[in-house]
Design a protein around this nucleic acid. Structure first.
Lengths: 261, 261
DNA sequence: GCTTTTTTCTCTCCGCTGCTAACAAGGCAA
DNA sequence: TTGCCTTGTTAGCAGCGGAGAGAAAAAAGC
């Protein structure tokens, strides 16, 4: 392997992983640690990464401190599995909408290797996650940024969403009910989600099992607009049956035992 | 096989593979390594490929070369000081535009404590930086996300920018000249920057000293549209004078002595 | 708080590979 | 044949990667 090639791969690797240790990189590329240190010194000089004691980190690591809220949230494993499963529904050539949210973020993380995909999203964290993917065109809706989150909303968002048409929309929601459909506690977010659903041929709702059967104040969409519901394995059989009776394909993501950190 | 034919094939091959080693090419074309080296020397002279130790790589696209140097740790301190100084021009009640870039990012980092501010930006990294600031309303322009960066661009971006009016716009640029104004190497980015300048009552350009006096292919804005130029202390006095003669207020950010490496 | 221990970094040396340059050998046309 | 061009060969030099020793930083113990 050429030195330049290795340097390039190190930058790519650390960009994805946010950080890496010297021994880790030495083992990965099968070279001496001293060589990695020399590489890192050069890379830092060029300004791509920042050196720390014992390893190297992404320069802009601070601003996208991954998932402030995600870490504090329970059910990470469930969401990860849902995201992985949902990503399998996306294929080469698709134009998709990814709604803002942690579950949809996990979908994004599972499609980084795909090519010829266009992703429309109102979540700048999702956009950031996909920004280095050569095969993916990312379109951000624009709009007002919600405090403490990565979500964009407002008239700009809705205008933009009204003018697009996609194959699939992946929608997150705090409440979905077999009779009352998708509902939301925040009135302001209703129209953006409704626009997303309107813009897609196929609507796929992703929600962990605690959201199933819930009802909130404002209606986002009746149940008939939804094609597929992807959720976790802890959802009750009776709930599954209700959604199936409503004509929805229910898909269950199995949690794996070997959960790594 | 003729030498010219082999050279052509080498260029084709490396263009596809991004890089190649000398032994690899020697085996592929069944000639001596020395022959390959001679070919590569000529090819490099002609400017098609770039030679590295042990092989050859694709010449990096010229258009992204600046981002390479832009991130250079050399000027981080300078950019930080420029950002700090520029932030002092922003006051309570202002509506501002922050262009995409590392210098403008530093402006954002210095206004997190302000209140009653509206920030319009096409940089999702800047948006993310400000997302927890209670006193700041962040509006993201929307658009297509540039690969390997945090910048949004395209028709959506321009449309959005054409419909807003702000007190101040902070513009980053790879080249600003006292006679030729702001110019840019990437044609696609011209209209977004022009729209930003158009939308603002007061235009403030932030650029480290290496950008001063530079000229690129495409014109973004004539010099008369610019009100203030904020740059680093290493800029030459003659350059400062030229800009002042053009009616621009030039502000110099002093680097602190305690520059860490 | 301070010292001790461990880890990591930096620096130097040395072998290996690749580079440059000069020269030799073979092919081709005048 | 002579002159010229291309390719292979060789030798000395430069740059890269591995190993080890001392220095510096972080972690652990008092």
């Amino acid at each position: 392997m050429l030195a330049a090639e290795r340097k390039k791969l190190i930058i790519e690797f650390v960009t994805q992983q946010k950080m890496a240790s010297v021994p880790e990189l030495a083992e990965k590329f099968d070279v001496h640690e001293a060589t990695i240190r020399r590489d890192l010194a050069e890379i830092e000089k060029e300004g791509y990464l920042r050196r720390i004691h014992g390893g190297v980190v992404l320069e802009e690591e601070v601003s996208f401190e991954p998932s402030f809220s995600e870490r504090s949230t329970e059910r990470i494993q469930e969401k990860r599995e849902i995201g992985k499963l949902a990503a399998a529904y996306i294929q080469k050539g698709d134009n998709i909408i990814l709604d803002s949210g942690t579950t949809t973020l996990h979908i994004a993380r599972n499609i980084t290797h795909l090519t010829n995909i266009t992703v429309i999203t109102n979540d700048i964290n999702i956009a950031s996650e996909l920004r280095n993917c050569k095969g993916i065109k990312v379109i951000v809706t624009g709009g007002v940024l919600y405090h403490e989150s990565f979500m964009l909303n407002g008239l700009v968002t809705n205008d933009m969403l009204r003018n697009v048409h996609v194959h699939k929309a992946f929608i997150g929601t705090p409440a979905i009910h077999a009779k009352y459909g998708i509902t939301h506690f925040d009135e302001q977010l209703v129209s953006a989600k409704a626009c997303m659903i309107e813009a897609a041929k196929e609507v796929i709702v992703v929600a962990d099992h605690t959201k199933i059967g819930g009802v909130s104040l404002h209606t986002v969409s009746p149940i008939k607009n939804i094609d597929i519901l992807i959720t976790g394995s802890e959802v009750s059989d009776s709930q599954i049956a209700k959604f199936q009776d409503a004509g929805i394909e229910v898909v269950i993501a199995q949690e794996k035992a070997d959960h790594q950190i």
